[in-house]
């Protein structure tokens, strides 16, 4: 079933969901949220297009393929572990930049655990999209 209404709505819904997901990803270090939940919310931005029945756009950000997310996500996650090794400590040892204050966000802490979370976030998006693509393919048969 194709819904033109949902297709139009998707254009307005997908970006807010995506931005919301990045916020969830960021706050996850100390509050509920994080890479996994952020990834699920971020993927739902893409899934609005699938639900409309017209499929995802052919160009632009929302046309990115699942495997791009998977590869980038796994790569980012592994990279986040390497600084620890290079410093001669255990793999994935956390390193933090000194905290600073920003309007809206308050005090900001950036470090390798956040990079790892970004990796998880991208991997989850890729995984959900691949799942959706596979299920949609079955439906066509």
């Amino acid at each position: 079933m194709k819904s033109h209404l949902l297709l139009v709505a998707s254009r307005f819904l997908s970006w807010p969901f995506f931005i919301l997901s990045i916020w969830i990803l960021y706050r996850g270090h100390n509050l509920p949220g994080g890479g996994f939940i952020g990834g699920l919310v971020g993927a739902s931005g893409f899934l609005f297009y699938d639900l409309s029945g017209y499929g995802r756009p052919k160009q632009g950000f929302f046309s990115l393929k699942p495997f791009s997310f998977l590869t980038a996500g796994l790569g980012t996650a592994v990279l986040s572990g390497l600084p620890g090794l290079l410093a001669g400590k255990g793999f994935m040892t956390a390193f933090w930049l000194p905290g600073f204050k920003l309007p809206l966000l308050g005090s900001v802490h950036l470090g390798t655990p956040l990079v790892f979370d970004i990796g998880v976030y991208l991997t989850v998006i890729g995984f959900i999209l691949l799942l959706a693509d596979t299920l949609a393919e079955e439906e066509k048969l």
């Binding site: 393929k65 590869t71 796994l74 790569g75 592994v78 090794l85 001669g88 400590k89 255990g90 793999f91």
Partner: peptide, 26 residues
């Protein structure tokens, strides 16, 4: 370097896996 050798048998296949995924995409 001591530590690197312990975890290298895990890291090498993991990194190659990611590299192969990337190569397959192109």
């Amino acid at each position: 370097m001591n530590d690197l050798m312990v975890i290298a048998p895990i890291l090498l296949p993991l990194m190659t896996l990611i590299l192969c995924l990337g190569l397959e995409m192109s």
